[in-house]
Amino acid sequence: MSTNNKNENVLQETLIVLFYFFLIALVVTAVSACGSSSQSNSPSQPVAVPDSQGGGAPLPEEQEDFTLVSEVILSATGATSASETYASIESVFGEGSIEAPDLFAGDHTSTPHILEETDSVVGPHFVFLAHRDDDFNKGDQSDRQRNEIKTYDKSDDEVLGFEGETMQFEWYFYVASDMSLTSKFSHFFQLKARNDSEDNSNGNDDQPVITLSAVEKDSSGKELQVRHSVGFNSDGSRTSDVYLVRANWSDIADEWVKVFVQATFAEEGHFIMQITRVGDGATIIDINETNIDMWRGVSDEDFIRPKWGIYRSTAEVNKLRQQEERVKFADFVIRKGTL
């Protein structure tokens, strides 16, 4: 056989071997893409948590059919100064969207009340602080204290809910089992109305439409509650809140949970809330209320807005401990969409 023929055979065999290696590589890549999505829990990398569209309890049909129109995200960056943290919040929710005691004259101005920390579960997150003897309500020394962030009339329309709109809200949430509570209220999330009326013609904006709260019950200990209010009656008398769910505080305490809310803002609206533990994926709260009154507006200028943080009664101050309380939040997401 000539030297040229030998070289041609060697070349052909080499090309065949390379071709088979290429096919094997394609198969391995395809199997990896279709296989498990588990990730490392090493301290250097936050654990990946399934989003609201996957895992956990079966999803309501309305959630599955949600078509995204807009999405706004507020995430901590690990900033070490309060000025950076406050600036990042206001860059998303609008200037004046922070109601922290250190921002109001006559209140607890000597220390920042929203900090940033990082852990191995959710990564960078916000820490909201409350101090029993020092914090007030936007400078007002009343029977309550407030440290919240919100959207409001100076925020972009993408983070405000107008009549007939459907919105989703998502965030991660952490509370400690030893946090002190009273028989009054401690709110961590609110959907509040802006109602351009003083005559209670459609409720009013005094009472939140929805609250995620906690109380200390004398008989059963600490309780997590989701409440719904229809506002005041037309004669000015106050209505009672309706409990959509009452759960054990211990079901969420000392662990990160993910909260998902979907709301359609209408007189006969729709409200969904799911709270899922990050660690084991257990669903703690699963609410799906149809034909629920989710609207208080009387004009095209009215809207519903979210609030997060610590807003609590101090009427039973002796039940609150002097130690600084810390409530953590991460990765706020606000979406608008259609069903």
Rank of each mutant, 00 (worst) to 15 (best):
E62N: 07
Q63Y: 00
D65K: 15
D65Y: 06
D65F: 04
D65W: 01
D65L: 13
F66A: 01
F66Y: 03
F66D: 02
F66R: 00
T67N: 14
T67D: 11
T67G: 11
V69I: 11
S70Q: 06
E71F: 04
V72F: 03
V72A: 08
I73E: 13
L74H: 08
L74N: 11
L74R: 11
S75L: 03
A76S: 07
A76P: 04
T77S: 15
T77V: 03
T77W: 03
A79I: 05
T80E: 15
S81L: 12
A82I: 03
T85V: 15
Y86K: 05
A87P: 00
S88L: 13
S88C: 07
S88K: 14
I89L: 02
E90L: 13
V92Y: 15
V92S: 14
V92R: 15
G94C: 09
G94N: 11
G96P: 02
S97T: 11
S97M: 12
S97E: 11
I98F: 11
A100C: 08
A100K: 08
A100I: 06
P101L: 01
D102V: 04
D102A: 08
D102C: 10
L103E: 06
F104M: 10
A105S: 14
A105Y: 07
A105I: 09
G106D: 01
D107E: 03
H108N: 15
T109E: 12
T109A: 09
T109R: 11
S110C: 01
S110D: 12
S110M: 02
T111C: 05
T111V: 10
T111E: 13
P112V: 01
P112N: 00
L115Q: 08
L115C: 00
E116A: 05
T118F: 02
T118S: 12
D119E: 09
S120K: 14
V121I: 14
V122D: 05
G123R: 15
G123Q: 14
P124K: 06
P124T: 08
H125S: 01
F126V: 06
F126I: 05
F128W: 09
A130M: 13
A130V: 01
A130G: 09
R132I: 01
D133K: 04
D134S: 13
D134A: 13
D135F: 04
F136E: 07
F136W: 08
N137F: 08
N137R: 10
K138C: 06
Q141K: 15
S142E: 05
S142N: 08
D143G: 07
